[in-house]
Amino acid sequence: MTRLLLVEDDSTLARALAITLRTRSYVVTVARDGGSALRDASSSRPDVIVLDLGLPDMDGVDVIRSLRTWTQTPIIVLSARDGQRDKVAALDAGADDYVAKPFGIEELLARLRAASRRAAPREDEPVVSAGDLVIDLAAARVRRAGLDVRLTPTEWHVLEVLVRRRGTLVARADLLREVWGPAYERQTNYLRVYLAQLRAKLEADPSRPTHLVTESGLGYRFEP
């Protein structure tokens, strides 16, 4: 049986969809907002996610981006927004498919079957361990030697990008663009400052980092 996370704030639609999907052998968990969706995705580990974009606490595109920091679970957007810009934004953020409301249940079921077929074997662990570091990507939490480490929002964002691509080089321009935006691609001094702060908090010997590694003139890499 396929585990499905349904993220929909319209209680009537959510109830109707959940009943229908359960009759088709889906095990359905319903989340009514973005925060609940992220927690449920981490705890219930669904096989597929059906997501509305218009959520009460955060935009669905931001939910997709957050999910994609640690999971490749298929995401099908189900939304009343049918403009090209909305579709492109959702797909660029990491959605696998986009179904506009109103929709036919048979079409949705066909999209679900297709998404499940395309899904590759994956490692969805939201928790990454590296030496005495434990980094929970879903909860945005870091522990070192069993103790919580306080990071600023920007420090966390830098770390998150590197951990998400752990083991691979992240170019300086890419890291600046993702954390600060396109206008900051040349502000390499930002990276020196924030990497130094992160190393001071996370490395046993900040002068000889083993996890937050610099590739001189190129970028940075997180080594588990």
Score class of each variant (00 low, 15 high):
Met1Gln: 12
Arg3Ser: 12
Leu4Ser: 05
Leu5Ala: 03
Glu8Cys: 02
Glu8Met: 01
Asp9Gly: 06
Asp10Cys: 03
Asp10Ile: 02
Ala18Met: 03
Thr20Asn: 13
Thr20Gly: 12
Arg22Tyr: 00
Ser25Gln: 15
Ser25Tyr: 14
Tyr26Val: 10
Tyr26Leu: 12
Val27Lys: 15
Val28Leu: 03
Val28Gln: 02
Ala31Phe: 07
Gly34Asn: 08
Gly34Trp: 09
Ser36Glu: 15
Ala37Tyr: 04
Leu38His: 04
Asp40Thr: 08
Asp40Lys: 01
Ser42Phe: 15
Ser42Leu: 14
Ser42His: 12
Ser44Gly: 02
Pro46Phe: 08
Asp47Ile: 05
Asp47Gln: 13
Val48Asn: 04
Val48Pro: 03
Ile49Met: 08
Leu51Gly: 03
Leu51Ile: 06
Leu51Asp: 02
Asp52Ile: 06
Asp52Asn: 07
Leu53Trp: 03
Gly54His: 09
Leu55Phe: 10
Asp59Ile: 06
Gly60Ser: 09
Gly60Asn: 05
Val61Asp: 02
Asp62Gln: 14
Asp62Ile: 09
Arg65Met: 05
Ser66Glu: 15
Leu67Lys: 13
Leu67Val: 13
Leu67Pro: 02
Thr69His: 15
Trp70Leu: 14
Thr71Gln: 14
Thr73Gly: 09
Ile75Ala: 11
Arg81Gly: 00
Gly83Phe: 04
Gln84Tyr: 12
Arg85Val: 11
Asp86Trp: 04
Val88His: 01
Val88Met: 03
Leu91His: 06
Ala93Trp: 00
Gly94Ile: 12
Tyr98Phe: 13
Val99Met: 04
Ala100Phe: 04
Ala100Leu: 06
Ala100Lys: 08
Lys101Met: 11
Ile105Glu: 09
Glu107Asn: 05
Leu108Lys: 01
Ala110Cys: 03
Ala110His: 08
Arg111Pro: 00
Arg118Thr: 04
Arg118Gly: 10
Arg118Val: 00
Ala120Ser: 09
Glu125Arg: 15
Val128Cys: 07
Gly131Phe: 00
Gly131Ile: 00
Asp132Thr: 10
Val134Asn: 01
Ala138Thr: 11
Ala139Trp: 10
Ala139Lys: 15
Arg141Ala: 14
Val142Asn: 11
Ala145Cys: 07
Ala145Phe: 08
Asp148Lys: 14
Asp148Glu: 15
Val149Pro: 08
Val149Phe: 08
Val161Asn: 06
Arg166Gly: 02
Gly167Met: 03
Gly167Asp: 05
Thr168Asp: 05
Val170Arg: 04
Ala171Ile: 01
Arg172Met: 14
Ala173Arg: 15
Asp174Glu: 14
Leu175Val: 11
Leu175Ser: 10
Leu176His: 07
Arg177Trp: 07
Arg177Gly: 12
Glu178Tyr: 02
Trp180Asn: 01
Gly181His: 04
Tyr184Ala: 13
Glu185Lys: 11
Gln187Leu: 09
Tyr190Pro: 02
Leu191Ala: 08
Val193Asn: 08
Ala196Gly: 08
Ala196Trp: 04
Gln197Val: 03
Lys201Thr: 02
Ala204Met: 00
Leu212Val: 01
Glu215Phe: 10
Tyr220His: 13
Glu223Ala: 12
Glu223Gln: 15
